[in-house]
């Protein structure tokens, strides 16, 4: 999976550079997030701007990141959701769990 990870002040910005986040590559995203948690980086913004398709495994990876961040007194926030991706969060009620921002600037500024 191609991701771009950058420190942006109080939080880490993870840009997912894939068209799909599914059962084939969501494990990689989970591993990348776990590496950050191990380094003590517990405030994450996941930018899904380039992701056109997400399945239940992709959602599961983000839930895993959210739970890990919360357990370490951090947070995982999302931004850049395309309409069909957003509809998946609504279908599974996860839009009530995550803080979701239009763009990365707004998400990063919220920390």
């Amino acid at each position: 999976m191609i991701v771009k990870i950058e420190e942006k002040g109080a939080a880490i910005l993870i840009e997912v550079k894939e068209e799909r986040l599914d059962a084939h590559n969501s494990g990689d995203l989970k591993t990348q997030m776990l590496n950050l948690f191990e380094e003590g980086k517990n405030n994450l913004v996941v930018d899904l701007q380039e992701v056109r398709f997400v399945d239940s495994s992709g959602l599961g990876a983000l839930v895993s990141g959210f739970k890990n961040a919360s357990a370490r007194n951090g947070n995982l926030k999302l931004c850049g959701l395309q309409p069909q991706v957003k509809s998946m969060f609504e279908l599974t009620r996860l839009h009530r769990v995550f803080e979701i921002f239009p763009g990365s600037q707004e998400a990063l500024a919220s920390f």
Binding site: D55, S56, L59, G60, A61, F66, K67, T92, V97
Partner: peptide, 16 residues
Amino acid sequence: SPDFKSLDEHGRGVYI
């Protein structure tokens, strides 16, 4: 059906 409040990592595929 999944329990939406439990924030389980798995179980959403079948529901979808």
